[in-house]
Design a binder for these strands. Sequence first.
DNA 1: TGCTTGACAGAAG
DNA 2: CCTTCTGCCAAGC
Length: 104
Amino acid sequence: MKPMHEAFYNDVYNIVSQIPEGKVLTYGVIADLTGWGKHQRMVGKALKEAPAELKLPCHRVVSSNGRTVPEWNEQIDMLRDEGITFRNSNCVDIKRHMWRPEEF
DNA sequence: TGCTTGACAGAAG
DNA sequence: CCTTCTGCCAAGC
C-alpha cells in the first residue's frame, strides 16, 4: 500500500488539489514540482490510486501536448464543462489553459 | 534477480 | 493534426 515514498504521493495530491477551475496541468510539471522530475508515470499511478475522499481534480491533469487519458471519456466531459476548449476528440487546448504555479 | 507493464514525454513520419 | 517509436523509472510478478 506504500509503493513509493509517501512524500511523493503527498506532494502530487497537494499540487493537483490546487489546480483552479478552467486550468489544466501536465504530469511532467507535477513531477517537476514534486522534485521527482522523471517520474511522470508515477504521477499518473498516484492519481489512479488517489482516494476519492481527497476529491482531487485529477481530470484537470493531462499528458504533454494536452492529450487526455484514453478510454476516460468522462474526463473530457468534465473539462469541457469547466470551460476548457478541445482541439479534437481527446486533446485539450493546453496552450491556452496550461496552469503555471510559477506565476502564483 | 530479471522481464513486462504503465492515467507519460518528446521526437519522428 | 494524428499515429508510432523510443527513453525513463518504479511497480508487479
